[in-house]
Amino acid sequence: MADTLVRKSSSSPSLLFRYGPEITGLASLVVAALLFELLVRVGVINRYVIPPPSDVILAFERVVTEEDILGRSGATAFEMIVAAVAAVLVGVPVGALLHRSPLWRRAMEDWVGALAAAPIVLAFPLFLVLFGRSPKTIIVMAFFHGLAPIILKTIEGLSGTRKVLINVGRSLNMTSSQMFWKILFPSALPVIFTGIRLSWTFVLITVVGVEYLINLGGLGQLINELAERYDLPGTYAAIFFVILVSVFFFILLERVELWLRPAR
């Protein structure tokens, strides 16, 4: 009996300790929702600007059954994955090439930095002319927006490789290809992943933003339509699905990172 009591008392604090951050995060969300509910109901916040959270929850069913939310989430996720993966496949090699050539690096780095800061979403009329009102436009724009952080962080990661690790490689007479794949690249991976995370955030913003602006495709278009209908609870419910797609996206990235960098 005493033994059971001891086990019980020792297991509950450890559970709380283990899931403490998740429980606290979830509780904060619930508290914030309740606070908004209260502020809207007493009239401090106008319900035509921010709907009460209870209305948003009720709108979920309608959005799911009437607005083909799964199909739209799938369309947005597809555009995001194509653009994001393309940004990685192009950005990392371009970053590696620029790292190898100091002249090109000095010539291009500022331009790439400018590309990262440019509000590419606003250039949508140009892309519409080039690629038509199709998912291709959304993907190409998101790709360009997501490219710069990966290039910049790849250069930064490769340049930041500790000199002593390079000297270990030199002392072992490694070829330049071995040096890249076995020392420079793995050493740069944490910084490259920071670039990928930034890039994927840019990609997500661009995909949803351009879908909204050109009224085409997945969740961005749905948000546009619901906002046009002045269905604010529905709009917020759709925004929630954007967050879901984003969470799915970043869990996927975390899995890939865990696979590539088991020593994190």
Binding site: R162, N167, V168, R170, S171, N173
Partner: peptide
């Protein structure tokens, strides 16, 4: 005049590869 296989070097700074066990 270049790294020689007969010489094995141990460096002053920590030089293990953090991504390898």
């Amino acid at each position: 005049s270049a790294p020689h296989p007969a010489v094995g070097m141990v460096f002053q700074e920590e030089s293990t590869f953090p991504w390898r066990n």
